[in-house]
Amino acid sequence: MILFIIVGMCIVTMIPRLLPAFIVDKLQFKDWVNRWLNAIPFAALGALIFPGILSVRPDQPHIGLIGGLVAIGLAYIGLNVILVVAGAIATVFLFTL
């Protein structure tokens, strides 16, 4: 039963990922569609960050927010992504002590 669930989850996750690899070759996009698709990474980042970040500690949404602000600050001064991640983890950890 669990195996059947895993195979099902695999198929419904694979198809949406795989389909574009086959269809982009068949399609020529207008300029505005290309601009749209080129904006997708930034839109996706936005949608993935907020409001999800508020649920890092579901009972205390401000902790995720503060961790996020620290990450913005560290990234703004030009630190490597690894250090941004480490700084945000440390911040949240200090708040939960």
């Binding site: 980042l45 993935l48 960050i49 999800g52 970040i53 890092v56 500690r57 995720g64 961790g67 996020g68 990450a71 913005i72 560290l74 990234a75 630190l79 490597n80 992504v81 941004v84 991640v85 700084g87 945000a88 983890i89 440390a90 911040t91 949240v92 950890f93 939960t96």
Partner: peptide, 13 residues
């Protein structure tokens, strides 16, 4: 629990 912020921080970074 603190590591829950890791991926969000990566997206921000």
């Amino acid at each position: 629990q603190s590591m829950g912020i890791a991926l969000y921080a990566m997206f921000i970074g």
